[in-house]
Design a protein around this nucleic acid. Structure first.
Lengths: 150, 150
DNA sequence: CTCATTGCAAAACCTTTGCATGCGC
DNA sequence: GCGCATGCAAAGGTTTTGCAATGAG
């Protein structure tokens, strides 16, 4: 259970709906459920998990509806997509998406925490004459909660 | 075409076979072909590409043989597995696998180049009381060859 | 000869697509 | 009512599994 209001006083859930509206998406019951679900998650989730949750609220829900919505929400920048060893996963786009940053990822609960360190800010030697267009930096380990509960 | 002999004077191909032998794997024709193929690649390859190459040398080759061997070779540390946006890919394990290092990956030809920089060597601030067990750092861009040919 | 490895076939997934129906606006 | 979203069904692709046959050591 996590939900923090933002500057304008909207809950995360309301914020997502507002973004959908601004992008001219129709606010269907299914999308409300998706929004409510992601607003409440602190970690990554697979399409399967999303489906299993949603199916509790919408009998006869089809898998392609889940996939289509995940794709749509990613392309609108509302969700983020990650390629992990055990498959594709999704997560609410980081609140602080204005500032470039990286993540600490707990290997136990899969919660993620922003880092205020970027390796590219330091002197890094890249082979001569190479053009750098992007980078990826992730730190894995145990968050304080998981260190205690094991 | 790349193949550099190592300290003991073995070609990359011979080196792979030697590793297989040491791990008590049987040297089948199929595995020779796989070894020859990976010794000759500078980038990532998908299981499909491996299959398509091998099928030229072994009529009736089955896809599961490719998968089984890829898995085996990864678990023996001969190959490395990467999760990328367009699927799972494989590559010969870096020669310099004794020294910890990261990669520069060309987004055009997918060749990879070792970097002698590790962000964890610098002072990076991780949230208090977190235990760090691993990290991932990759730089993307264009290698000098691809910058010229475009 | 023995047992790891292969080929074959089938199954289990995951993801995408086309089309008629339904629902948000 | 119009048009986007959904449900349904089916297909395409990837990866895994069981089992009998084969070939390396």
């Amino acid at each position: 259970m996590k939900d923090h209001s933002n500057a304008i006083g909207l809950s995360t859930y309301e914020h997502i709906l507002k973004e959908m509206e601004e992008k001219n998406l129709r606010i269907t019951e299914q999308r409300k459920t998706i929004a409510r679900w992601f607003a409440d998650q602190s970690g990554f989730v697979t399409p399967r998990v999303v489906y299993e949750h949603m199916t509790q609220h919408h009998s006869g829900l089809s898998f392609d509806t889940v996939y289509r919505n995940l794709r749509t929400l990613v392309s609108l920048g509302i969700l983020e997509q990650f390629e992990r060893a055990d498959g594709v996963k999704f997560r609410l786009h980081c609140d602080s998406h204005h500032a470039h940053h990286h993540h600490f990822i707990c290997t136990s609960c899969e919660s993620i925490f922003p880092l205020d360190f970027c390796p590219m800010d330091t002197k890094i030697r890249v082979p001569e004459h190479f053009f750098v267009s992007g980078h990826r930096f992730e730190v894995f380990g145990l968050c304080s909660d998981c260190m205690i509960n094991t």
